[in-house]
Computed example of a mutant assay.
Amino acid sequence: MKVLSIVSHPRKNSLTFEVAGRFVQGLTAAGHDYEILDLHEIGFDPVLKEADEPDLSAAEQSFSPEVEMEIKRLKEHDALAFIFPIWWWHLPAMLKGYIDRVWNNGFAYGSNHLPHQHVLWIGLAGVSKEQMKKRNYDEMMTHLLNVGIADYCGISNSKVAFLYETLDSKPDHYEMLLNQAYCFGLNYAKNHECGPRKSD
C-alpha cells in the first residue's frame, strides 16, 4: 500500500517528527510505500473560508486550489496515517483545520466517500495511560476519530494508537516510544498489538 502520513507539529526537532520517522521506517520494512505530508512545512492554512464552505445542496463541489491539490494528493494513496500531539484532549488546530477543509462535502462525505482502505491515528500524550483513562479521554478521542470522522467518511478500518508520557525524556522511555512507532508501521493494517517494550 501507499500510505500518506500526515504530520502536525510546528517543530521539526519534536518527538512527533521522531515518531513519524520511525513509523515510516516500519512501513518500509513491511513493504509499503509512503509520503510524509508536513502541514506546517507546506504552509497549509487551517482556516475554513467561503471557497471551501461545505455546500450540502451540491452533489459535487469545487474548492479552492489549495484544497483541490490536497484532494488530488489523497487520491494518490491507498491508506492514511495521522501523527500528532494531543492538545486539550483533541487534535491540534492545524490538523482539525486540514480535516475541516479537505475532507469536505462531495469528496469525503455526502455523495462520495474517501476511497482509502485504512487510517491510523497516532496521538502523542504527555500524560500517563491512567490519566487518559481517568475521565475517559482515551475513549472519547477513539470514538471521535474512528466513528465520528473515519467511519462517517467511509473508512471502516480505523485505529487509534496512543503514545503515553511523551514529556518523559529518559533515554529508555524515549526509545521505547520510538520502538512502538516502528511497530505501528511494521504492523500497519494488521491486528498485531504494539505495546510498550524496552529497547534491546
Rank of each mutant, 00 (worst) to 15 (best):
W87A: 08
H118P: 01
E68Y: 00
A150F: 08
M94W: 01
K190D: 07
K72N: 11
V7A: 09
L4F: 08
T28R: 13
F184Y: 15
I36F: 05
E139M: 14
C194V: 11
S57K: 14
S14K: 11
L27C: 06
L37G: 01
Y174A: 07
E193M: 11
G148M: 10
K134L: 14
M69Q: 14
G26N: 04
A181Q: 07
P54K: 01
L39Q: 06
H143P: 02
V19N: 03
T166P: 04
P85S: 12
K96L: 09
R11Q: 15
S5D: 10
A93F: 09
L167G: 14
G148F: 07
L163D: 05
A93P: 07
W103R: 02
V3R: 08
Q117E: 13
G123A: 11
K72C: 01
L120A: 06
S156P: 00
Y182T: 05
H173W: 15
A79V: 00
D172K: 10
P10L: 06
G148V: 09
Q131S: 14
F82Y: 15
E165L: 10
G97R: 03
L39T: 10
K12N: 13
L37Y: 03
K96P: 00
Q25Y: 03
H90W: 12
A79W: 01
A51R: 13
E76L: 15
S199R: 06
L186R: 15
M1Q: 12
S64C: 11
N146G: 04
W88R: 12
A79C: 05
K134S: 15
Q61L: 01
L177H: 03
N104A: 15
M141T: 14
P46V: 04
N191Y: 09
L177Q: 06
Y152R: 03
E41S: 13
V67F: 07
R73T: 10
E76Q: 15
Y188E: 07
L48S: 03
V119E: 02
F44K: 03
L91V: 06
E70C: 09
R22H: 13
Y182G: 02
L74W: 00
T166R: 01
P85F: 03
V147D: 12
S8P: 06
K72R: 13
R197L: 12
E60Y: 11
L114A: 03
G185T: 08
P54I: 03
V127L: 09
A59S: 14
E70F: 12
E18W: 05
S8W: 02
F44T: 05
G126L: 09
E130M: 08
L167N: 15
K134T: 12
S158C: 07
K129L: 13
Q25I: 04
Y164G: 00
M69Y: 04
H192M: 09
Y34N: 13
S62F: 04
K198C: 05
L144W: 13
K129C: 07
R197G: 08
R101E: 02
N179S: 15
G123R: 04
F44Y: 12
R22D: 09
Q25G: 02
F84P: 04
Y152T: 00
H113N: 11
E70S: 01
V3H: 07
E76P: 08
A20Q: 14
P65E: 09
